[in-house]
Design a binder for these strands. Sequence first.
DNA 1: GATGAATGAGTCTTCATTCAT
DNA 2: AATGAATGAAGACTCATTCAT
Lengths: 195, 195, 195, 195
Amino acid sequence: MIKTERKQSILSSAEKLFAEKGFFSTSIADIIQDANIARGTFYIYFDSKNAIFDELIEDFIQSIDQSIYRINISDPSRDPFIQLKDNILRVANLLYNRSHLTKIILTYATGINHDLDQKINDFYKKIINLINSAIKLGIQMEIIRPCQSEIIALCILGCIKEVAHSLFTHENPSDKLNEIVDELINFSLRGLLNT
Amino acid sequence: MIKTERKQSILSSAEKLFAEKGFFSTSIADIIQDANIARGTFYIYFDSKNAIFDELIEDFIQSIDQSIYRINISDPSRDPFIQLKDNILRVANLLYNRSHLTKIILTYATGINHDLDQKINDFYKKIINLINSAIKLGIQMEIIRPCQSEIIALCILGCIKEVAHSLFTHENPSDKLNEIVDELINFSLRGLLNT
Amino acid sequence: MIKTERKQSILSSAEKLFAEKGFFSTSIADIIQDANIARGTFYIYFDSKNAIFDELIEDFIQSIDQSIYRINISDPSRDPFIQLKDNILRVANLLYNRSHLTKIILTYATGINHDLDQKINDFYKKIINLINSAIKLGIQMEIIRPCQSEIIALCILGCIKEVAHSLFTHENPSDKLNEIVDELINFSLRGLLNT
Amino acid sequence: MIKTERKQSILSSAEKLFAEKGFFSTSIADIIQDANIARGTFYIYFDSKNAIFDELIEDFIQSIDQSIYRINISDPSRDPFIQLKDNILRVANLLYNRSHLTKIILTYATGINHDLDQKINDFYKKIINLINSAIKLGIQMEIIRPCQSEIIALCILGCIKEVAHSLFTHENPSDKLNEIVDELINFSLRGLLNT
DNA sequence: GATGAATGAGTCTTCATTCAT
DNA sequence: AATGAATGAAGACTCATTCAT
């Protein structure tokens, strides 16, 4: 087995186990058993149990990050709402396809590694800022009603996280992504009231 | 020190530490040091590390549960929206005042105790159901527009959790509860669009 | 409750528990619960867990010791065999009536207290010597055939211990003492062969 | 050091210490110190302190069991008394060579492990039954005088145990096995009386 | 005398990490 | 590169004993 394959195989086992049992309840013994390698071999590829967890999480938040494109409002041929929906769909698809990692970050509890806590916090802050800026822009353009955009940004992130947690964290996650995303956007834009 | 005081003091130390460092990274040594008691004393009051954690969580979800009153729609003198807002305010105040416990349940990672996992799941399901029923009722009464109420219920829970997490989890949580709750309700009812 | 009664009550609980669960598996908590006293009270009457065990054992081996009378062979009016049988019957009755203590000494494992080990050893040695002297006397008097009396003394002690263990250690010990003692004496004197 | 050697070395240390100090007074710390290994190494080879004790005892009673051959009375060329003596000699040699284990089982106090208690009880019951059947057969064949064979079987087991305990449990156990076994058989067959 | 809360040394057990082969 | 035996620090938990009330 070539180096990168072996590394992937270990990452894959760890990902599965961390999602199932959590970081602390997953032991190196569990991982090497699942990956079918010797104890020492694990430490050839990763410095520590923390290190493999970090790598998993960091790679994942980076992929999510890369699947979010900045919304272009200067080009009149591209509807910003469609760009928004495309972003959400791309992220949703990513979460859907990596349900183990989705579960891991959505139930991530601090206390494993301070650096990692920081990185995850920064990631969420970045998303909040992104949403926040979009809302503020919308308010300027008078598409969106005046509001405390920071609070609303939190709400929208919360919606996404809770829905993702509920839908993509099960063995057979829902596949009606499009419908669900529509519902979510609709709710965010129009609210519940029957007007 | 009388028995109940001592127990409270231990609970208090544990609550603080679990919130700061997480369940697994908090040792009995940490707790007894903080509570300024001997090792054996801890075990007079609690059977195990799991037991004290369970007690903390169970008591908290019970308080939250008890602060939510069923909304009465048959009495025309009581505006259901005000009843809703009162519920949210009561819960918000509770979370605000018990910020350690709020942090603990909002970053709760499964795997500590299967029974507890179940109880927390049940609690969230109960809340989802409450919201879901309210939405369905609203739809019937044509106050609320037709929608996939299950998804929307998740959204609303997500909003509450994320806002709570962001605001009540810091050392000096925001005290503009009323404003925040208004913003949240407004968002849920009207959405973002400027109509 | 007067002092001696309370002490007896504690001794009684300890005796029962040591017999049931063994010295190490019986905790002070078990004893005070059974005796219905507070923790501190125990230490008014006994210095330590070892101390109560020692007292129990020492008193018991002393009673056994006192129930064995030296056999008088100079008085022709008293058949030595009857004196022997009377001795055995007295001991047997004692064991029968104190089945808890019988179980404790018969399953006594060293390692609790070096002094006590010594005392029990000395007690058994004394009995062995008693039997040994009796046999030697019998040989001199030509009642008993020549033999290695030390080995035979061990055999006889072994017979008594094993029979006692089997019979007096159960919930309802056998009450056919007389028959059993006859059988034992017969075996020792005549052996198994059909002559 | 190869795995089986290391395991033997640990078993050997444990055997010595359990014999010297008893199960409860022997700590894992004692064993690993004597075996000159690290704490964790012990747990590579044995699941627990109970487990190593069980293994020691079970293996030993199995060896004893296997050294006892069923006595063949249908073959006229083989004297049953010689077969009996051979059995006793084989067991005696085994006990003589494993004096630590001999001490352990002869002072075994119940309460360490219920399964093990059962196995040891069963083992002794099996021996009692063996002796009992032999006596009954002897009675039928009119070699042995009529008697309460159950009591006598206990006596014979008691003789063997006490003699074994006294002789093989010391640092330098007696090596006059043949003589001792003869004495024991003689006593059992002929008793003490000078006829 | 009686109480029972408090103590802390001692015990078993786990597990991430190392390193000689 | 791969192995897996060995390590030992760190953790949870127990329990005989003490002592202020």
